[in-house]
């Protein structure tokens, strides 16, 4: 695989991820506003609704859909790193496989904290 081809695939991957995530967020958002548009916003005080991914089950459905979209958005750069790792491995570029793997481990650690 050439550098150019790799770059094109990464570009398409990023675009698809952002577009689909934004669409999911928007769907949940429109629903949420339709259901509770007249409620008062409560963002002035730090009382979080979401404490990690495990909060997903306890949310109202529109909020849960928005959160799924946000998770998809967060997963987009992660998918990019996984893909880059695979591409370097295909080229037997072991130094960059190792470099990319370190980045992947840091990302997985961070995302892992939100599941616990």
């Amino acid at each position: 695989m050439t550098d150019e081809r790799l770059e094109q695939i990464v570009g398409n991957l990023l675009r698809a991820g952002v577009v689909s995530a934004a669409a999911v967020v928007l769907t949940g958002g429109v629903w949420r506003l339709a259901v509770e548009g007249f409620a008062q916003p409560h963002y002035g005080h730090f009382r979080p609704d979401v404490l990690g991914v495990r909060s997903l089950g306890g949310l109202a459905l529109p909020d849960a859909i928005i959160l799924v979209g946000l998770l998809a958005l967060i997963a987009t750069p992660l998918a990019r790193v996984v893909f880059t790792l695979a591409a370097f491995a295909l080229r037997r570029d072991w130094m960059y496989v190792a470099i990319t793997a370190i980045v992947l481990i840091v990302l997985l650690y961070s995302i892992g904290t939100s599941w616990l």
Binding site: Y43, L51, L67
Partner: peptide, 9 residues
Amino acid sequence: LSRGYIEPG
């Protein structure tokens, strides 16, 4: 996300 800084709404 785990600390509650991300509010979906």
